[in-house]
Amino acid sequence: MGLNAGYILKRVGFALVTLYVAITVNFLLPRLMGGDIADTIASEMALGSPEVAAALREQFGLDNTNLFYQYKQYLVQLFQGNMGVSYVNYPAPVTEVMLSALPWTLGTVLIATILSYGIGWMIGIKGAWKSGSLFDNISLFVSFFLNSVPYFWIGIIMIMIFSFHLDLFPLGKAIPHDFDSLSFMGKITTIIHHAALPVISMIIASLAGHILVLRNNLIRVLSEDYMLLAKAKGLSNRRRKYTYGARNALLPSFTGLMITLGHVIGGALTMEIVFSYPGVGLVTFNAILNHDFPLIQGAFLFIAISVIIANLIADLMYPIIDPRVALQ
């Protein structure tokens, strides 16, 4: 089913255009809001150092009122990895703050998404195979309920039960104070121990969407003629359910998965605040509280870039799973 060069080019092109749009939105929005942009990016007050502020202003072309010149300077700086200096973490550059936060977010979000997708897949398929059964109805109602609950509330409830009352997990943070003194295995164990509750909370919060989408898809697949033919062929239940049905139900949801990933990242932002988990969400939260504008912009860009890359990977993997796509 050789990967088709046109397809790859198209997907990469689309990702680049999306990236460009995200970067431009990031440039334009603050300016459209009508604030003093020089002050938001290079506030002398916040940075506490007029020299640094002046240097930043020059770098970003803020001493020039021409918007195009500013745009050009902004792009040039961005390509050099310069997103300005964070007020809160002065003198740390935004890029550095974000890069140290990103792995925590990506790690938990990816693991949570994969697990949640897998679990949702199993439950959705079980429900659709016997639609109308007790299991199906219960899973449907639980899904509706979970879809109605804010991510962070699930996080708070989980902390209340499992950390505060049962004392099974830490109350928050990604690593303990004495992290550096731990052995290698000790470090890994403690990281997992800290990440467990946020990840479980994210799984619970994002599960419902997967269940519902897969259930609807499989119900549609089950009405196809090839499913009837598979039954007429006398194939085993198992083979019809998984090889013939579940796989086809999975395919259309795969592109949907990426839209959900955006949702999950959005949810993860608030979840991290609940767990004081040092990822992009917590950084963003602190940036908002302290009006650290360069950091907010940086956070937006990092979130956008991560999602765009994840999307691109999914797009490129899609033809491997669905042979029909490669040909189009």
């Binding site: 689309f14 255009v17 749009v21 939105v25 955006g262 963003t284």
Partner: peptide, 21 residues
């Protein structure tokens, strides 16, 4: 629509809301 669909809505909301006076 497809372009903007990829960017998480909450992230867009955050950047808009935080720059509003």
């Amino acid at each position: 629509v497809d372009l903007f669909l990829i960017i998480p809505t909450l992230a867009l909301m955050i950047i808009l809301a935080s720059f509003l006076p």
